[in-house]
Structure formats: C-alpha cells, structure tokens
Design a protein around this nucleic acid. Sequence first.
DNA 1: TCGGCAAGCCAC
DNA 2: AAACGTGGCTTGCCGA
Length: 412
Amino acid sequence: MTTVYETLERPLVSVLARMERRGISIDRQVLSRLSGDFAQTAARVEAEIQEIAGEPVNVGSPKQIGDIIFGKMGLPGGTKTKTGAWSTTAQVLDDLAEQGHDFPKKILEWRQVSKLKSTYTDALPTYVNPQTHRVHTTYALAATTTGRLSSNEPNLQNIPVRTEDGRKIRRAFIATPGHKLVSADYSQIELRLLAEIADVPVLRQAFRDGLDIHAMTASEMFGVPIKDMPSEVRRRAKAINFGIIYGISAFGLANQLGIAREEASAYIKKYFERFPGIRAYMDETKDSCRRNGYVTTLFGRKMYYPDIKASNASVRAFNERAAINARLQGTAADIIRRAMIRVEDALAEKKLTAQMLLQVHDELIFEVPDGEVAATLPVVQKVMQDAPFPAVILSLPLQVDARAANNWDEAH
DNA sequence: TCGGCAAGCCAC
DNA sequence: AAACGTGGCTTGCCGA
C-alpha cells in the first residue's frame, strides 16, 4: 500500500511541523499556585506518614513502603513483583485503604499530589519557549506499532483529566485573548470500529440508534433494563467492552473488576454469545496474523507481529492480544490522520483561521478567534466524521463531539 | 557523575 | 498485580 505513505504520511509530517511550531499557551501563574498547593499537601501528608511509620522513611521509595506495610506492619494480601520486592501499586494500596488502613491511604494521597507536581505543575513551565511564550511538544510519527502518534518533551498526550486536581492542571492550558480552544473528539471510535470490523449487528444498530453503548451491553448481558440501570452494572459492562478492545483475558478482566476468574470467564462467554461476530473476529485476526506475520487496518496498512508464532506461550498470547487491539487502534489512528491532513484546507476554503494545535489520539484541539467558533465547529466535525471516505465506507456513523471554551478542561 | 533498570502512574 | 492494548515521564537505586 504505497498509497498510504505517499498520500498520508508525507503531508502529515508538514501538518505536525506546523502544530509543533504553533505551540499552546499555558497559564504559568495557575501552575505555580498549584505547585505550591501540592507541595503543601505533600509535606503535610508526608509528616503524617513519618508519624505512623515511627522512623525516617523515604516516601518516594516503593521498596521502603512495601517493607513497612507488609513487613513491619504485617498487613495482609501482600504480593511480590517479578524482582521479589513487595508490590505497592495503587491497586494494592487501594485494597488496603478500603479495609480501613490509614497508612496505605496516605501513601496514595502523597503519590497523587507528588505525581501531579513533579510531572506537570513543576515541569511544564520549564518547557515554555522564551520567544513564543508557548509550550511546543514534539510529535513522533513512527514511534508506535499501531500507527498512533506519540508526543514528547513535553508529552501533551497525557495531561491529567481524571481527578479534580488533575483537571486544575488542564485548566492552565488556555487560548490566546480573543480566542477559544476548540476540542473535537471521536466518541467511542474503537468500539464503533469493533462493531464494523467484527460485523456485530446488535452493536452496529446500537451505534446507529445513538444508544449508550455500555448500558446497552449491560442490558444484553445481564438482562437489566437500560432505564434506571445501577451504575455498578454499567461499570462492569464498560470494563468488558474495554477488555474486548484490548484482547480480553479472564485473568485481566478478573483483576480489573475485582472478581473471581471463573466469574470473569462466564462474563466473556456470555459476551461472545450475545454479540456473535466478536469471537470469529478474534480468531480470524489471530489466524491471519500467524499466516502473514502482520494484521492490517481497514485502510490496508500493515502492522507486524512476527512473535505471534513464538514458542513461549505467554509471548504468543501477548502478541495475539496486541494484534487484536492493533486493528482497532490502528484503524482509528489512520482515520484521525486523514482528518488532520484534510482539516486545514477545509477550514481555509471557508476563510476560517482556526489553528490546529494538538492531537490526543481521538481528539483534535484548535485555537479559534471568538467570532469564528460557531462556523468552525461544523467544519471540523464534518471533516473528522467523513475522514474514512472514500477509501473506506463505514456502515455506521462516526460521532464527533466538539465544544469551545477558554481552557482545555472546559472545552473537553 | 552518568546511564540504565525497576517501579509506578499519567493519558487514550 | 498486571497474562487487558498503545505510549512518555519521574523517582529511586545501583553499578560503571
């Protein structure tokens, strides 16, 4: 498929270069104030941790924390990492915190603010370019096996969004005065591509009907009405949907949901029954990857997984899951690349001056003059929705949500 | 002092 | 505790 390289990759390099050169504004005062807040919280929590420990402890050392929790304090449920150290991941500490143990809870709190401070509020200002007063990331076009971009120095594709403290950092990404940030993102693009590629009638129809896809999944699997569905039921279905995209295993799903492996197995079995096409899609993907050494996106781009034939069973299984995921993640990557290549001309044709600044896998961020926002939104949405055309005609619509605000958090 | 690995965690 | 996919960044730690 030389077409992909000639018509997509070469222009994309130029598009990315323009995005890198434009950069994005951050509010250094907001970040500075947040750094102070985080420092204060970290210091307070660290003092409480030292108090409980009763001895000097380096809070940032997982090894020391593990020795205290599972050695000295003798809390239950300890597991070891592959090097033999006590594991102290967030999941482990969360389990202990839920059992009422204060120490792991405080470690979690310390880690959260420390992460946000060191990786974001302290680091981002050091990337502000003195000439432009903006932050300029660098995109790597060929760094991933699936065709996604990656972003570094700084990575602007992993700005926090999950927690309230995290969103405070996102609010520091701002538009120039007289402008708005416009964020446009594909809704559930990988699940839509799963419905398309695996040819799952129920799933495709659900997307055509605009249903809440996780609620629909829960309804199909557990026989619960979509109306007034308990959030826990929907949460499980959502975890299963994501698991499917990632090349599910009963082990992984059990860990994710905190249920027994047997129960997770039953869920997967039920899912395959309710959504005919998924199992065949997975089997066909593995078979063709074993035959050819690669899998392809809907656009024909190849992604190589030669180790899918490895003699080691766990290496083999890993490559099988990666190959299953790659067709979905890779096709989504192709689609947003096509949109990025087309959107500049589409805007120019309407005399719109929006500037594309960032790409975050299924999201594009633009800086737009206040007076052009209303006209810009539908142009961006249409280009993104129609991006597969004409090379690929999907049997279901791609939905693109777009909104404008003064900062990235409120636009997202 | 530097480089690399391990552990951990942020995003999609 | 990652055998549920793709990345990048930071800290601690250890050996050269």
